[in-house]
Design a protein around this nucleic acid. Structure first.
Length: 584
DNA sequence: TCGGTCACGTA
DNA sequence: CGTACGTGACCGAG
């Protein structure tokens, strides 16, 4: 009997939650009131699984969906069935509990309210096993270290137990999310936090697909761009050294007595600059910029820095390490980092704009780019419930009405809004900030509340329910506090003020992205890059118009539930081109 | 070999 | 002295 019919007969309704565990020997499914063991290779089972209309629950997309994503692309072809709705316990755990780890041990301990155990290491230590007796849960309530290390994969009976535990965690996570207050001015079902869990789970799956599919990059174009800055690809190490020397000398010649100054050593550069009369606290480019016009050596140094950046971070070794033979740039993706933004390695998120011409569609395909306009101030209008700011956010350009309300010009209005969200304390925004307080009191109060929570060490949640852990741990008995080591106390307030806006915007963005992904089902087009407020899609040329429309309708559909009742409008700018640069 | 600092790319 | 992120070169401690 086909699996779909089997599950239907077993009472699994469309859209219901089914836990999925993928083991080498087969697949285990568990749902409320039933279970199945499906022996066999996942590559054979994958297409049928992908066609089922259920919400897959897995410990993490990487563990369970990884094999399916790899198989679906290969076996089913580019337009084959894709996994649909899911519930990613690791992603939701990060949302609900504000933890950073995604291993099952951390997910489980957060679920049971236990101390987070040490992260699993590569190899099992006998000491780890303690008095484990082979069962999944230890006497102390933690997950078995053996199971966490992959012991669930030994046979289908264990895989099924692993699926049943996933089902338990899912139910607890969902009811905890349902218990959170719905922040929308028009509360609806399902609650916003549950919808956010769906989106965060989908984003974790999307992250895996981004890793698998890669970003199309034309090696020849990239070679031309890099070569124009650094010279031709060096044939050996001495050639590379000579190229570097040539670039260095062109700068050093312009400084008197520069001699053997190492341009890569900021201390030496600072001394060198002092000799031409520039006494600066550091040598950062924004400090040098004002002197570039009057001092040719400084202009040369800044140009050198740009070239050096390209040759070290985005040069030949970058190309060799991260671009595959198939012309795809691949790096590891994370669906939620810190405040909740996606992040990516291999330079995918910080590639210099000069290299964008190298991001090129395959022949017969195009890149469709869409970015959200003024997303953070619009998000602030939604999350703070500020009626006046929401009215401004009904416009395509919301800074125009803000400028009118502040009796200022548009640039000043923009700086004032950004300054409020980012916690800027100095500069020319001061007066405009006081006007902001008068015009948008609820938005400003919302930000101030977040800042005070940051300073006081009180946990916060984003609009979608992401826990921002701001509480400080008491370290010594003298009461010295240590928060996250990254932040000095002076920055805690600014961090929190920004995190509630940036994190909520990231939730909207991911909800949009997974809606777009769903809209691409059955077509060969793919999302190939997520960049905080920008999506880049690789699609057949003949699909360009349809996909462009999808990007807009998906945003409207997302905003309907995300910003329900706020009146805030979200806008996207869409463009099509052969390259990323052209699609701007 | 490691962590800290500086620097800089993107949003 | 606006926030977030990832990356690489250099330095000094171990």
């Amino acid at each position: 009997m086909p699996l779909a019919d089997d599950l239907a007969a077993a009472g699994v309704a469309a859209g219901s939650t089914v836990a999925l565990v993928v083991a080498p020997v087969g697949v285990a499914l568990a749902w409320d009131g039933g279970a199945r063991q499906l022996p066999g290779d996942v590559s054979v089972l994958a297409p049928e699984l992908a066609r089922l209309d259920v919400r897959w629950t897995w410990w993490s997309a990487r563990e369970s969906a990884g094999p399916l994503v790899a198989v679906a692309g290969r076996a089913a072809g580019r337009a084959g069935p894709r996994l649909r709705a899911c519930w990613d316990l690791a992603a939701v755990s990060r949302l609900l509990h504000g933890t950073s780890r995604e291993d099952a041990a951390a997910v489980w301990s957060a679920h049971r309210g236990l101390v987070e155990p040490p992260p699993p290491r590569g190899e099992l230590d006998l000491l780890d096993l303690g008095d484990e007796d082979g069962s999944a849960i230890r006497p102390d309530g933690q997950l078995s270290r053996e199971w966490v290390a992959g012991g669930w994969a030994d046979d289908l009976t264990r895989a099924l137990r692993w699926a049943e535990l996933a089902l338990e965690v899912q139910a607890a996570q969902e009811s905890a999310l349902r218990a959170l207050p719905d922040p929308r001015s028009e509360a609806r079902q399902p609650p916003l936090a549950v919808l956010t869990a769906y989106a965060e789970s989908g984003a974790a799956l999307l992250a895996l697909e981004l890793e698998h599919d890669g970003l199309p990059l034309d090696r020849d174009v990239a070679t031309g761009l890099i070569g124009a800055v650094t010279g031709p690809r060096p044939v050996d190490e001495s050639h590379a050294t000579a190229q570097r020397r040539g670039r260095d000398d062109a700068v050093l010649r312009l400084f008197p007595d520069a001699g053997a100054v190492d341009l890569r050593n900021p201390a030496q550069v600072r001394v060198m600059l002092a000799r031409i009369g520039l006494d600066l606290p550091d040598t950062r480019s924004w400090r040098l910029e004002p002197h570039a016009a009057s001092l040719p050596p400084v202009a040369a140094l800044l140009a050198w820095r740009k070239a050096e950046r390209l040759s070290t971070t985005y040069g030949w070794s970058w190309l060799d390490r991260h671009v595959g033979a198939d012309g795809r740039l691949r790096g590891r993706w994370s669906a939620a980092e810190g405040a909740g933004r996606m992040s990516a390695q291999a330079g995918l998120h910080n590639m210099p704009a000069e290299l964008r011409p190298a991001v090129r569609a395959d022949p017969g395909w195009v890149l469709v780019r869409a970015d959200l306009g003024q997303v953070e101030p619009r998000v602030l209008a939604v999350v703070s419930g500020d009626a006046a700011l929401a009215t401004a956010a009904r416009e395509a350009d919301m800074y125009a009405p803000v400028a009118a309300a502040l009796h200022s010009d548009r640039p000043t209005a923009k700086v004032a809004v950004l300054a409020a969200m980012y916690g800027q304390t100095s500069g020319p925004a001061g007066a405009a900030l006081r006007d902001m307080d008068r015009a948008y009191p609820r938005a400003m109060a919302y930000l101030r509340t977040a800042e005070e929570a940051g300073r006081a060490g009180t946990d916060l949640r984003t609009y979608g329910g992401r826990l921002l852990r701001l509480s400080r741990v008491r370290v010594g008995d003298e009461g010295d506090m240590s928060f996250d080591d990254r932040y000095p106390p002076s920055a805690w307030g600014r961090f929190a003020r920004n995190a509630v806006v940036q994190g909520s915007a990231a939730e909207l963005f991911k909800a949009w992205a997974v809606t777009v992904r769903a809209g691409l089902a059955g077509s060969p087009g793919r999302i190939v890059l997520c960049l905080h407020d920008e999506l880049l899609l690789h699609v057949p040329a003949e699909d360009a118009a349809e996909v462009s429309a999808l990007l807009v309708t998906a945003l409207q559909a997302t905003a309907r539930w995300w910003a329900a009742g706020s009146g805030v409008r979200f806008v996207a700018d869409v463009a099509v081109g052969e390259s990323w640069a052209e699609a701007h």
